[in-house]
Amino acid sequence: MPDAQHLVLFIAAGLLLNLTPGPDVLYIVSHALRAGVRAGVVAGLGITAGCFVHIFAAAAGVSALLAASATAFTVLKWIGAAYLVWVGLKLLFARTPQAQPDLEALARSQAPADLWTVFRGGFLTNVLNPKVAIFFLAFVPQFIAPGTGHEALAFLALGTLFNVNAIAVNAGWAVAAAWMARRAAVQRAMHWLDRAAGLLFVGFGLRLAMAENPTR
């Protein structure tokens, strides 16, 4: 494990990375805008669960194999890209309720979010992105001192710390997006926000599809 100074640096770097907008943040925000804080938080928890898959895989050496194998990386990359594009197309063609001045009436007009579907979507958004696996493999070992015994356990501890810290950041994104959705101007713009989010998801999917294995 790193000393106190490096541990603080690790936590700070992790928080900054989690604040950076990307597919995960966009997934949380889009659901919080449409269905409220609870849906946004559940989306974040799905992403957290997906991150744990990558953390355990990296500790077990699976991510190292993924980084070294062009075929494995390419297969997972195309699956992940297709999924992101599919999410984007769903948003592009989604029907958005008309804005209403009465927030209670607006809430009644929307069907409750299927939280299991939201969770599963966040999980898949993260798990099917091989760049997340490569990220953990590249980022976390920098904070493990050379010669540390039980490196796999140290990796798991740091990866878990990174992931647990991300929960608060993800919840913050959900709260902020849900608060914005209660503003009348945002309600009126919801149709275009869905379309913008859909285009961004499609863009993330296309960018992933064109990505090369970063270790090659």
Score class of each variant (00 low, 15 high):
53 V>A: 13
47 I>H: 11
103 L>P: 00
21 P>W: 10
31 H>F: 07
71 T>G: 03
46 G>E: 04
6 H>G: 04
76 L>E: 02
76 L>H: 01
54 H>P: 12
63 S>G: 10
96 T>N: 05
101 P>V: 10
59 A>P: 06
50 G>L: 04
100 Q>L: 12
47 I>C: 04
81 A>V: 01
83 Y>V: 01
35 A>P: 10
107 A>N: 06
62 V>Q: 13
92 L>K: 07
62 V>L: 15
103 L>F: 01
75 V>P: 06
102 D>M: 07
44 G>R: 02
87 V>W: 01
72 A>F: 07
28 I>N: 11
105 A>I: 04
22 G>I: 11
13 A>C: 11
46 G>N: 05
4 A>R: 07
71 T>C: 02
88 G>V: 02
3 D>V: 02
109 S>Q: 12
9 L>M: 14
49 A>I: 01
10 F>R: 08
47 I>D: 01
53 V>F: 15
89 L>I: 10
58 A>G: 15
50 G>N: 02
27 Y>P: 12
60 A>I: 05
90 K>Q: 14
67 A>F: 03
72 A>E: 02
64 A>T: 09
60 A>W: 09
8 V>H: 06
40 G>P: 09
56 F>R: 06
101 P>I: 10
83 Y>M: 03
43 A>W: 09
11 I>W: 15
95 R>W: 13
109 S>I: 04
60 A>Q: 10
76 L>P: 00
82 A>H: 03
